[in-house]
Amino acid sequence: MLNPVIVFENVHYTYPGDELESLCGVDLAIERGSFVAVLGRNGSGKSTLAKHMNAILVPTSGRVLIDGIDTADEAKVLEVRRRVGMVFQNPDNQIVANVVEDDVAFAPENLGVEPTEIRRRVDAALALTGMSEYSMHAPHLLSGGQKQRVAIAGVIAMEPEILVLDEPTAMLDPLGRKEVVDTAYALCKARGMTVVLITHHMDECVDADRLLVMSNGSIAADGSPAAVFSDQALMEREGLGVPETARLLQALRASGMALPEDRLDTEGCAEAIAQAIRTEA
């Protein structure tokens, strides 16, 4: 890897009071500026993995390096957290203020940033997440998708290099999910942020640069979405299923059609099939 920004070295973790390990020897390096999706059933360790990325949890053994900084170094915890913005599942439980822009200002205020600079960052973060027109609204009156975008704005205001989203869409309706996922992809593609998206929804992973599947505290699969989804036996075993596009492409290929494996977005998949049918005719 050319320029890894997150590095896990043989990370083990056991929750206090538990007997079983939640992470059993994870080795992982994530490339700067890439979009990594993480799938896995409940209890597979994917949230535990996420919480290691900003020192909410530190390894029982092994180490995690963020931009070269060891997360176990207590003196540098703020350094780590400033670099890694975390967004969680329940939008209500991560908004601290009664007015959207005051909430977005919370992190830079904690970091002791100058007032005029905070103002600039808050406005920029709200613009990036498309929430500028709601800056004076009360968060509890927003939709779920809007609340999550406020939460994203709230961490972007720290100007982090990495954005980690831990099942940010689990409590949202389809429109809200799309808002949040589109925002995450845009931050990666247009702003060069490294994004780690933890999710249950296969279709949120199809455009990722890399897809990880977690199982029993280890990484069970790691590769491009097309490659991972093509291993149907694995996906079945992990109780995950496969996106419709991948399923259809595989079935058609199995029946002898010349189709690529990696056109997993709806448009691309339709285009590929249409072309194949035309050439055959």
């Binding site: 279709d203 996106p243 419709e244 596009t245 399923r247 259809l248 079935a251 058609l252 709806t266 448009e267 998949c269 339709a270 285009e271 099939i273 249409a274 049918i277």
Partner: peptide, 27 residues
């Protein structure tokens, strides 16, 4: 998802019937 794909296919000139809404029917 199957309907969505079927819709995209129709737009690209592949005459998939309109009432296709499952993977099996689409395939």
């Amino acid at each position: 998802r199957a309907s969505e794909l079927a819709l995209a296919l129709r737009k690209k000139g592949v005459p998939v019937p309109e009432d296709v809404f499952t993977h099996e029917r689409l395939l």
